[in-house]
């Protein structure tokens, strides 16, 4: 889905918005005041929702927080029967699959962003850009279905046998590699469309300057566009990472769901989101439920931080001087 970060330029809006109450129509009647309060109340609901999520998740995981403390993060034993919970295997699986996905997705999505923003004509940009964004519209469970019946058998029979000598593990198709490939496909539209917007926000005069000095198209991109867009591109990558960490269905279906840490990318693994999806409805004890809630809380806090950081980085580029309305 398209991410709305970056379509922002506070200073300009603040200037215009101050006009409303002051110059054009002061709040003379009761209706105006009520309307403003009503809409403000709805807006406040969004903030409250986020706060309520944080509170509810902390409350739900209180039992596990107090019982295991910091050990929860480094424990490797997950046994609902003996009520012993350590989340490290899931944390490892989540981080490993997401980073691997970034390694695959970042070069491809940046190249796409460069092509769409700098190297293509407007009609190409519009139609191909749309096709890439359609990729983001396909539901996660459908990617999972495709992963189970198409990607995993393909990896198992054709690709992984050749990789086993290098990475160890076994060629079974349901493993970290499969999860990373699916994740890469899913975060590719996010990274490419946000970085494309960021590059488009770089002032045109910079490109013209480079071209006027005799730079080729590619040199222009390298010298005039990428340096200014850098922080926004980092923001786009962080957004992609946030999506990858929280992605549930497709990963659950192909990662193999085995809660052991193995360094081979060809071994089955387990992710935080997957263990929540698999065990939450069937959690028997209160401690089990609390432990799962604590994993959710962790995921929530990490994605919150990543999104806040990404938002900041993407905005920095949006505030570049000149051509204010591009973003």
């Amino acid at each position: 889905m398209r991410f709305t970060v970056g379509r922002e330029s506070d200073e300009r809006d603040a200037g215009r918005l101050r006009l409303w109450p002051a110059a054009i129509g002061a709040e003379v009647n009761l209706g105006d005041r009520l309307f403003r309060i009503l809409t403000a109340a709805f807006a406040a609901l969004i903030v409250l929702m986020l706060a309520a999520m944080a509170i509810q998740m902390t409350r739900a995981s209180a039992l596990s927080l107090s019982r295991f403390g910091f050990g929860f993060l480094v424990g490797t034993d997950w046994d609902p029967v003996r009520e012993s919970f350590g989340a490290l295997p899931f944390i490892y699986g989540t981080i490993a699959s997401s980073l691997l996905a970034l390694i695959i997705a970042v070069p491809i999505s940046l190249a796409i962003a460069i092509y769409l923003s700098e190297l293509s004509a407007a009609p190409v940009r519009r139609s191909l850009g749309f096709v890439v964004e359609l990729l983001a519209a396909i539901p996660s469970v459908v990617f999972g279905l495709w992963g189970v019946f198409v990607l995993a058998p393909l990896l198992r029979d054709r690709i992984e046998p050749a990789l086993v000598p290098f990475f160890g593990g076994t060629a079974n198709g349901f493993d970290l590699l499969a999860a990373a490939i699916i994740l890469a496909i899913m975060i590719l539209p996010t990274i490419s469309s946000v970085s494309r917007d960021v590059m488009a926000a770089v002032p045109k005069s910079q490109r013209e300057g480079a071209l006027a000095l005799g730079a080729t198209r590619w040199e222009t991109v390298r010298v005039a566009v990428l340096p200014s867009a850098r922080s926004g591109i980092v923001g786009a990558i962080i957004l992609g990472l946030g999506r990858a960490l929280g992605e549930t269905m497709a990963v659950t279906m192909v990662i193999g769901n085995r809660g052991e840490i193995s360094l081979s990318i060809l071994d089955p693994s387990y992710s935080m989101a997957a263990v929540i999806a698999n065990e939450y409805t069937e959690a028997t004890g209160e401690l089990h439920l609390a432990a799962l809630s604590e994993i959710t809380l962790l995921l929530f806090i990490v994605t919150l931080a990543l999104n806040a950081a990404a938002r900041f980085l993407v905005w920095r580029v949006a505030r570049l001087p000149g051509e204010k309305n591009r973003l």
């Binding site: 969004i46 903030v47 998740m57 929530f300 999104n307």
Partner: peptide, 23 residues
């Protein structure tokens, strides 16, 4: 509010499910 809305759009959907479950 803008900040919350943007950050909310990045919250994993599974976490939203857990939230709705607790409520």
């Amino acid at each position: 509010v803008r900040f919350s809305a943007d950050v909310l759009s990045g919250v994993p959907s599974i976490a939203v499910g857990v939230f709705a479950y607790t409520i």
